[in-house]
Design a protein around this nucleic acid. Structure first.
Length: 842
RNA sequence: GCGGGCGUGGCGGAAUGGUAGACGCCGGGGACUUAAAAUCCCCUGGGCUUUGCCCGUGUGGGUUCGAGUCCCACCGCCCGCACCA
């Protein structure tokens, strides 16, 4: 049966745009706040408007889109919004390089990227679009920040920044390369500035406890957050110093106290500062530490260095005098900024002790006989205490309790819980961010901008060709009258970390009143987000800050929701082969567009000569292994690209882009189109086997989409397609074809709409209900049983489903192949797993 | 360095502790065609003495009737480390 409408190939060039307009015109994907249907909030992490969407965005948004469309088809009112994380450094860099205003650059990028997203046919509610750089958005953020200030969750303190002494500007960590400023090349210094902080540590316990309720988050992300929050219990105690002072240290291993051979303090610890005051060498050492990197990774990979202050600390039990060192690996931010160092059982201390010839004593061993076994590295494991006076023979846990008990009863220390989590520094000395809505008055101090004077809008007339924050240099902007006393005062010129912007955008999507950040009742109807999707790189910071911000608002009574994201999914990256040649000892990379790729190798189109095929890595501009979503959509249509994003690789893993892969997807689009052409609404007759496969596919694809296992759903659709193609015409075959169209529609919506209309169905397939699986057709009546002997497969048998163990055993023993394998051996045992296998043990 | 993850054919991957390699890509063979494209059919982990047998899920051990799956150790790669977003 052929149909003239299907004579031509499916042409995405004209079909894609037509259906995108049809959805727009019908407002198909607009979320109805007053709907009585069950709600589903599907959200992907919003993009930074860099100018072009990246293939990684396409993957991320395709996953969310399939889920959103599926949820609509299964009867949900779906909120699936999109917006722009629009503040940040790239806009300032562009302003410097291209002499464009950050705002103009950003809005142009948004326009470009929005058009790109539209061409992919995403089922988004664009009526809720927002950009964080819009005063309409950041003005509300300023109000929330003032609320948190009034709730006592905002404060100011001194904190170090990377200072470029040549450009006279603060640098982000990524702008510091090998300890030097990226533009000036000057050695970066640490400089202390008074900055704004949010009290995330007030919520450490809550954020940790809350992880337990996030059952639909990946375990790995929960574990990473747990480790980041880093709750530890230990002993804080005081050493008496030889100079008459005392020194508070914190240790999570008080059981190892008899193994302490020195004490180490951070370079910015008061004891170190005091040593520097009367010792030029100590001062020089501290200066050297300041020149090192600021990041934890740099500090911990750097060679362990120390400076002996000459001061000693008295061991609380043995009375031994331990040298006090200034050490570059001790962090002022954690605990008390000073540690008792136990080289035998801490690797950093071990390296340090080895370098400076300090004693390394074993105080934990597997058993008493091992007490004096030499240590070639620190042993952090469990065991019993040795060489430890009254602790000898105790377990690590018993010893911890014993030491804390003695310290508390003798009054020189106490058990203490310490968190690794530090308060969130939100000050940025930059222009393109949310102005912190405060005013500095010499009479009244730091005063919030009154709510009726918000938003504090960024000035437009700024000069970004000079390094440094233009808000500081601006002739008029910062000069204001104090809202309290009316006297002359100055605006705060720091702007907020962009992580603040992304800590509540999901609330604003759910509710957008003009006069307030959101309406709590409306938010409560949509939140928590049912499915949040984004990259693992956000596993800690963004997700923890968003959880904190939500809880902080809840504490101030602004919100009922405590955990914003009920279910989280972290998708993998899109990768691609790299192509390069070594020229003068340097690797020169070529983009895929410049390459002819065959199964044998790759050549450069320009000169026909071979190039080397490098590793498959994350797409990046510097390696030129990117592909442009627009180009591939223009070549293959949105549906083939979407299908490729979902096929093959499981969504949490990396997806290698390949030309052959997208070609295969294109062919499948056309194959489905031909199959739709075989649809005959009037076909008669049964095909029980195909009907069974159809209903099994309905059940499986639904489950796979719910589990976000798109690659498996895709495989199921391939299977059913192959079965339907082979089947003879029948009513069941037509039902199978119609079902395939529906099952594929969230993934290939344009093809599905075109096919839906062509087979004479009413309305949009986007509005059609998801097919229901008939439970009676899901079960097979025959199963294949594997028969093993000596742990190896010997035969497979067909048996009725639910056959008894005895029947299966008899069937297995009757097999000729099995008898040959047994070769008359005595049967010791037969294991039968019903409907699965028989294992004969001889 | 610390924390987290991943590792299965030529490639992407599938597999409630129970038939390893579903499904797709690449490749090979064939059909159709004047020819090509498109399409369709068959084959496709390795080896061997090929009615069948042996090997095989990063490496080395272990638990089990049975391990890709669980445990221990190691190797490699990837992500995060608080001012990139």
């Amino acid at each position: 049966m052929s149909d003239s409408r299907f004579d031509a190939r499916f042409d995405p060039g004209q079909a894609d745009g037509r259906w995108q307009r049809a959805w727009d015109d019908a407002q198909t994907f607009r979320a109805d706040d007053s709907s009585t249907k069950p709600r589903s909030y599907v959200l992907e992490m919003f993009p930074y408007p860099s100018g072009r969407i990246h293939i990684g965005h396409v993957r991320n948004y395709t996953m969310g889109d399939v889920l959103a469309r599926y949820k609509r088809m299964t009867g949900h009112e779906v909120l699936h919004p999109m917006g722009w994380d629009a503040f940040g450094m790239p806009a300032e860099n562009a302003a410097m390089e291209k002499k464009v205003h950050p705002g103009a650059w950003t809005y142009q990028n948004i326009a470009n990227m929005k058009a790109q997203l539209k061409r992919l046919g995403f089922a988004l509610d664009w009526s809720r679009e927002l950009a964080t750089c819009d005063p309409d958005y950041y003005g509300h953020e300023q109000a929330l920040f003032v609320d948190l200030f009034e709730a006592g969750l905002v404060y100011r303190k001194e904190s170090a920044v990377n200072w470029d002494p040549v450009d006279q500007t603060v640098l982000a960590n990524e702008q510091v390369i090998d300890g030097k400023g990226w533009r000036s090349g000057a050695p970066v210094e640490k400089r202390k500035l008074s900055q704004w902080f949010l009290k995330i540590t007030d919520f450490a316990d809550e954020l940790l406890e809350g992880l337990g309720t996030l059952e639909e988050w990946p375990d790995k992300v929960r574990l990473m957050q747990e480790n980041w929050i880093g709750k530890s219990s230990g002993l804080q105690f005081s050493f008496k110093l030889s100079d008459g002072g005392s020194l508070e240290v914190y240790s999570t291993r008080p059981d190892t106290i008899f193994g302490a051979s020195f004490v180490a303090v951070a370079p910015d610890h008061p004891v170190a500062q005091a040593a520097a005051a009367n010792n030029p060498e100590a001062e020089a050492f501290i200066e050297q530490c300041k020149r090192g990197g600021t990041t934890a990774a740099e500090l911990e990979t750097a060679e362990k260095l120390g400076f002996d202050t000459g001061i000693t600390a008295t061991h609380p039990f043995s009375g031994a005098e331990l040298p006090v060192y200034i050490a570059n690996f001790v962090l002022m931010e954690y605990g008390t900024g000073a540690v008792m160092a136990v080289p035998g059982h801490d690797q950093r201390d071990f390296e340090f002790a080895t370098k400076y010839g300090l004693p390394i004593v074993r105080v934990v061993a597997a058993n008493a006989a091992e007490a004096d076994a030499p240590l070639s590295e620190a042993e952090a494991g469990d065991g019993i205490l040795v060489n430890s006076d009254f602790l000898d023979g105790m377990s690590v846990e018993e010893a911890k309790r014993a030491v804390i008990g003695r310290a508390e009863s003798e009054g020189w220390g106490q058990g203490k819980t310490v968190w690794r989590l530090r308060d969130w520094g939100v000050s940025r000395q930059r222009y393109w961010g949310t102005p912190i809505p405060f005013i500095h008055c010499s009479a009244c101090g730091v005063v919030p901008v009154p709510k009726d004077q918000l938003p504090v809008v960024l000035p437009e007339d700024v000069d970004l060709s000079v390094p440094g924050n233009p808000l500081v240099r601006h002739p008029t902007w910062k000069h204001v009258d104090c809202p309290q006393c009316g006297g002359k005062a100055e605006r705060e010129t720091d702007t907020l970390d962009t992580f603040v912007d992304s800590s509540w955008y999901f609330l604003r999507f759910a509710s957008q009143p003009a006069d307030r950040p959101f309406d709590p009742a409306e938010v409560a109807r949509w939140l928590p987000v049912n499915q949040y999707i984004g990259g693992v790189e956000h596993a800690i910071l963004h997700l923890l800050y968003a959880r904190f911000w939500t809880r902080a608002l809840a504490r101030t009574g602004k919100l009922e929701v405590r955990e914003p994201f009920a279910s989280l999914f972290t998708q993998g990256m899109v990768t691609h082969e790299t192509y390069f040649r070594e020229i003068d000892g340097r690797e020169v990379f070529y983009s895929p567009a410049e390459i002819e790729r065959t199964s044998a190798g790759a050549t450069l189109t320009e000169d026909g000569q071979p190039v080397e095929i490098g590793r498959v890595i994350k797409m990046s501009k510097s390696k030129k292994n990117t592909v442009d979503p627009d180009e591939i959509v223009a070549r293959y249509g949105a549906d083939a690209v979407r299908w490729f994003m979902l096929s093959d690789s499981p969504p949490e893993r990396d997806l290698p882009w390949s030309e052959a892969g997208i070609e295969g997807c294109w062919r499948f689009v056309q194959r489905l189109w031909r199959l739709f052409g075989q649809y005959d609404g009037g076909a008669q007759g049964e095909d029980k086997a195909l009907a069974r496969k159809t209903h099994q596919a309905i059940a499986a694809v639904g489950e796979d989409i719910e589990a976000l296992s798109f690659n498996k759903a895709v495989a199921r659709i391939y299977e059913l397609t192959a079965a339907a193609e082979k089947a003879a015409p029948s009513a069941d075959r037509s039902a199978a074809i119609r079902t395939i169209l529906l099952l594929a529609s969230p993934m290939m919506p344009h093809l599905a709409e075109e096919g839906w209309a062509a087979i004479g169905q009413q309305g949009l397939v986007a509005d059609a209900p998801w097919p229901e699986a008939d439970p009676a057709l899901l079960v097979e009546d025959e199963v294949t049983i594997a028969v093993q002997h000596k742990g190896k497969l010997r035969d497979t048998l067909t048996a009725p489903k639910g056959a008894s163990k005895e029947a299966l055993e008899a069937l297995a023993l009757a097999s000729e192949k099995v008898q040959r394998s047994l070769d008359g051996a005595d049967i010791r045992k037969v294991i039968v797993v019903p409907d699965r296998l028989v294992n004969i043990v001889t």
